[in-house]
Simulated assay, not measured.
Amino acid sequence: MDAGAARRARVERAIAAGARIADPRDPLGEEARRRLPLTSGLSPEGVALALGRHLEVAPTRGELDALVASSGRARRCHVVLAANVCTAPLRAVAVATATAPEVLVRPSRRDPVVAELLVRALQADEAFARARGAIALVADLDLGGAAARAPGDAGDGALGDAERAEVLAELHIYGTDQTVAALRAQAGPGVIVRGHGAGLGIAVVGPGAMLAEAARDIAGDVVPFDQRGCLSPRFVLVEGPAERAEALARALHEALGEAGARIPRGPLDGATRAEIAMYRATLEAVGSLLEGDGHAVGLDPAPRSLLLPPAARVVHVAATSAEAAPSLLAPLGGAITAIGAGGGGRLAAAASAMAPRARVSALGAMQRPPLDGPVDLRTR
């Protein structure tokens, strides 16, 4: 098996392992559904939604081509995972297996479930081994040791002569900006670092959108993972007058209430409750807040700036225009990783210009991006 075929085969076996986790009848899927409500912060219904709809287990041929083509080439790949999105390990492991035959995964200490299940499945997968794949969980990183090994040491035999290169290892970090910076500083010569730090999504409602439909679509993007992922919309920018933003806020409040009845929000810890209380108090000075059982929608009819809501199914709605959007979005810097847009107009283009590397999708499709590489395109 040549190097390119081996890379693709390893990715396909990682996806096959993910499909077992997505299947509630498979022992891995049953175990995931039993354990994740205890570690992920999601309700059992939220876990079922995440595994049944948001594990990327049916990529197209074109998506796999793009994933393999965009991945690096190294002898081994270290992966550091975060706990925000319980399904994220599948995409991270798929990218890592395209990058290198040897993959070492440091799971989130708070939520290691999916990472553990994937590694277990791949370690027992003969087809993965035939594609020169080797994978293991690690508690700590040894970047110095990984970079210092010379050609001919353990693991080097998995590569043919055409694959041996100066890049000995890649380090893929998923986490906070502080985590990325700290681990980047530890990486020595021969280690390429690809850091994916904090990010968030925004939704844009243009003048041609039907507000009730847009609200349902936005709710469908907010509910998965209880809004904690970098694809989750935290802000909704409504193009037009304040009255239109208010109508959207009310429709979104209703849509989130209906969605929450089917898929309840997970339990909140004390810190998140305090963030919601602070958001509520701050918003009272500039707008209004619609609260339901398991969600909240804030409205700022005349924003001078954007107030970041907590990631707990709390959405901040603001009326704005294409001309005003740049000043509103500028403080977010490079944090915007996803834009959902509907209804045409000029505001979506203005938002995209402020975040040129964000993934852009239709409203309602923000949480189902193609499996063409990391979700976060800012470092591609």
Rank of each mutant, 00 (worst) to 15 (best):
R265Y: 01
V114N: 06
A322S: 09
G201L: 04
P374Y: 11
A349M: 09
A16R: 11
V180A: 12
L200N: 05
A134T: 10
C77W: 04
P303C: 01
V223S: 04
L211V: 02
S71V: 15
A162R: 10
M210C: 03
D2W: 02
E284N: 03
A148Q: 11
M366W: 06
A358G: 07
V57P: 13
G52V: 04
I336W: 08
C77N: 11
L332Q: 06
D153M: 13
I202N: 05
D226T: 12
R313Y: 06
L104S: 13
V360D: 02
L159E: 00
M210D: 11
G160E: 13
R106P: 13
L36Q: 03
R132H: 13
S352F: 04
S108V: 13
L248S: 00
G294E: 05
P151W: 00
A251T: 03
D65V: 08
A261L: 12
A349R: 12
T87K: 00
R164G: 02
Q123M: 13
A50F: 00
A96E: 05
G190D: 11
L117S: 04
A5L: 12
M210I: 06
G46M: 10
G195C: 06
A129W: 09
R10D: 03
L363H: 00
S327T: 14
L347S: 09
T60D: 08
A147G: 14
A139R: 15
A58I: 03
R359Y: 08
P369Q: 00
A5G: 14
A165F: 11
E126K: 14
H295C: 12
D26H: 15
D217R: 13
A249Q: 04
E102Y: 04
T272N: 00
G41F: 05
P264Y: 03
L42S: 07
A182S: 12
A5K: 07
E254F: 08
A9K: 12
A203C: 08
A311H: 07
A319M: 06
L200G: 10
P37S: 02
P101T: 01
N84C: 12
V105D: 05
P24M: 04
A214P: 10
A150D: 07
H78T: 11
A351V: 15
E31D: 10
E323H: 09
R130Q: 15
P331M: 03
F225K: 06
A48K: 14
A348F: 01
A251H: 14
A96R: 01
I192S: 09
D23P: 07
V191E: 05
P224H: 06
G343Y: 02
V167F: 05
S232H: 03
V119S: 08
A3S: 15
L38V: 11
I276G: 01
A92R: 06
E126H: 12
V375R: 08
V119G: 05
G345W: 01
